[in-house]
Simulated scan of single mutants.
Amino acid sequence: MTFIVFFLAATIVIFAAIQLNKYGDVINQKSTLSGAMIGTFLIGGATSLPELTTSLTAVYIDNADIAVGNMLGSNVFNVLILMTFDFIYRKKRVFNTVEQSTHLPIGKTGFVTTALLVIAILWDNSPSFFHIGFEMYLLIILYLFVVKKLDYGEEDIEVTSDLTLKQGVIRFIFAAIVVFLAGSTLTISGDKIAEQTGMNSSFVGSFLIAAATSLPELVTVLAAFQMAKYSLAIGAILGSNLYNLQLLVITDIFHQKGAILNMTSLSNAMTALLGLMMIFLTIYALQRPLVKNVFIYALPSATTIVLYFIATYIMF
């Protein structure tokens, strides 16, 4: 029964994510916001809502490993999604076709902030202020800095929707609420799965629940690739990952027993290290020169996929 509830909640998340992508595109068409900005901040933020609900619920049931593992694992799975589609569409040479000025700063910020989390997890009793880890304050500062520095250029958008901007916004918000509510169900059922199967909470949070809460990103990237809106796809993934780390700050605030990273298991450090390597490969794919050979172009994405499954096997 627990597995049925888990997969039912995951199905609802998928359906709502399809609507998020659909109405996010409407807002993209009817507003002055660029595709990169829509993907990075609007869709990226909304598709991170399951992670927020999941981690806050994990704090409520006093399971720090699921709370942290969910955020870190979701970021890892998000990059896996992007690089898997890049591998499938390798003949399109997706990373060579998008504007770097928006995506590179976000990717590099994600790399630095993930590195901070690795240090905090490995550091026994890292500093904290008001029961919030010192690294969380740095996450906020870096996030605000990169948002202020981003440059969103003008782009021509083909208007294909009959909906008004107001209708698009209202329906987008409704879909986001559905996604938000489904997250708590995923957490509670995932926690019960951990108890029933004997799997550790870190693995459940980092891979099982993280994969489920990343389903909105999967649907978003799939739709974006099918529409050849590669900038939106990359922005959605990198933006969602930055949002997840900010949501980890919120999770730490609600964790009243002290800095949450001081109370999570070291196995989460491996997830964070995996994320660090995967982000590095993504940044490399973004900023390297034009590659004509398809095999050489696909190496970063292929390496990312292999790394993920090796790490999953080791942690399991």
Rank of each mutant, 00 (worst) to 15 (best):
M315A: 15
Y23D: 04
L208E: 03
F129G: 08
H255G: 08
K192R: 10
E158H: 14
V204C: 10
L286Y: 02
W123G: 03
P289F: 04
T220A: 12
Y60D: 11
L33V: 14
V68P: 00
F280I: 04
P50T: 03
N262D: 02
G107T: 00
T47R: 00
A272V: 02
K257A: 15
K166Q: 14
S267N: 13
T84S: 15
A10C: 11
S34M: 06
Y243M: 15
K92N: 08
A194W: 01
M83I: 07
K149F: 05
Q246G: 15
P50K: 04
T11S: 15
P216S: 13
T160F: 05
D162Y: 11
G258E: 01
N125V: 07
D162E: 13
G39I: 12
V26R: 03
A67M: 00
L42V: 14
A224Y: 07
D86W: 12
D62A: 09
D151G: 10
I188E: 01
L266H: 08
D86M: 14
V221G: 01
I173D: 08
V118L: 07
S265L: 10
P289E: 05
V94W: 03
S231T: 13
T251W: 08
A176N: 01
Q167W: 06
I12W: 05
L245H: 04
A9L: 09
